[in-house]
C-alpha cells in the first residue's frame, strides 16, 4: 500500500493525448464530442465528469531559456485530479461518499453520492463535476480498480514519454527534485515543482498528483496559491454564531419592547 500518486513532468509531454484516450477506454467514459474549441489544438477544453485527463496546449510567444529558436515555445501539460492531501471535495461531502483510499487517493463511492453538487464548488482546481444524466459527481479514481490489482493507472501506462509517472509518492518526489536539478543544469532555469509538498502548497497540504512546470501556474490554468475552503470553515461558523446571537437578542428585545408600549 502506501501513498501513491502521479508526477507529471510537463517538459517531456508531447501532447499526444494518449492519456486521455487510455483513461476513457479503461474507465469506459464516453467521448464528449468532437467539436473544435478554436482556441488551440486543445479540443477537450477542461476536466469534467466524463474527462478525467486533459492535455493543455499552450502556445507562448516566448522561448524557453535553453531553447535555440526564438520567440516561440509550445507547452503541454496533462492535467488530472490532484488527489490533494487535504481534499476540499472530501471534506465538504455531506454524505461521506468521497473517501480516502488505502493508496491515499480521493475516491467517490458512486453508490452513495446523492448529487448535491457541493464538491463541485469546493474543488479549488475545478476538477470534479456532476454527471449530466444521472446527477452523480465523477472524477479521476486514480484507477482504483487497477491499483487493487497492482497495476499502473491507465494514463501513466499509456504515456509514451513517461511524462506521467506513477509510483510511491516518496520516491516520485525524490525523482522530481532530481529532474528539476537536471533541468537547471541544462539551462532551463524556469523549471519548478507545483504542489510537491505541504510546504510548497500549504493551502492543500500538498498534492498527490503534482507537476513540473516551466511557467506561472496560471498559464496552465492552475491556481497559483489554492486553498481548500474547508480549511477556513471555522471562521464562517464563528461569524454565524455571533450573528445568530445577535438575531436572538433582537428577537427577545423586540418582544420585550412591545410590552411597554414600544416604538409605536
Amino acid at each position: 500500500m502506501g501513498a501513491k500518486g502521479f508526477f507529471t513532468d510537463t517538459t517531456i509531454c508531447i501532447g499526444c493525448k494518449a492519456c486521455e484516450v487510455a483513461c476513457k477506454q479503461w474507465n469506459q467514459l464516453p467521448d464528449d464530442g468532437f467539436a473544435l474549441t478554436g482556441m488551440s489544438y486543445d479540443n477537450t477544453a477542461a476536466l469534467g465528469a466524463s474527462t478525467w485527463r486533459h492535455v493543455a496546449f499552450i502556445e507562448r510567444p516566448v522561448a524557453l531559456s535553453n531553447q535555440m529558436a526564438d520567440g516561440f515555445s509550445w507547452l503541454f501539460s496533462s492535467d488530472v485530479c490532484k488527489h490533494c492531501a487535504r481534499a476540499g471535495c472530501l471534506e465538504s461531502c455531506p454524505t461521506g461518499a468521497i473517501v480516502r483510499t488505502e493508496f491515499e487517493s480521493v475516491f467517490v463511492q458512486q453508490d452513495i453520492c446523492n448529487g448535491c453538487g457541493y464538491c463541485v464548488v469546493n474543488c479549488p482546481f475545478g476538477v470534479i463535476d456532476r454527471r449530466e444524466d444521472d446527477g452523480r459527481a465523477w472524477k479521476c479514481t486514480l484507477c482504483y480498480d487497477r491499483l487493487k490489482d497492482d497495476m499502473t493507472p491507465a494514463c501513466a501506462k499509456a504515456c509514451p514519454t513517461e511524462s506521467i509517472q506513477f509510483g510511491d509518492l516518496d520516491e516520485l518526489r525524490v525523482r522530481a527534485r532530481g529532474r528539476v536539478e537536471m533541468l537547471h543544469e541544462q539551462g532551463m532555469q524556469e523549471a519548478y515543482l507545483y504542489g510537491d509538498s505541504a510546504a510548497a502548497q500549504p493551502g492543500t497540504e500538498g498534492l498527490n498528483a503534482f507537476f513540473l512546470l516551466v511557467d506561472k501556474p496560471e498559464v496552465y490554468n492552475l491556481p497559483p496559491n489554492p486553498v481548500v475552503p474547508t480549511k477556513n470553515v471555522g471562521q464562517s461558523w464563528l461569524s454565524m454564531a455571533f450573528a445568530a446571537l445577535g438575531v436572538a437578542a433582537v428577537a427577545l428585545g423586540s418582544v420585550a419592547a412591545s410590552r411597554h408600549g414600544g416604538a409605536r
Partner: peptide, 12 residues
C-alpha cells in the same frame, strides 16, 4: 444519505 455522517467541515 446526508444523514449517514455528521461533518462540521461540510455546512451542507
Amino acid at each position: 444519505n446526508m444523514l449517514r455522517v455528521f461533518r462540521p467541515t461540510s455546512p451542507m
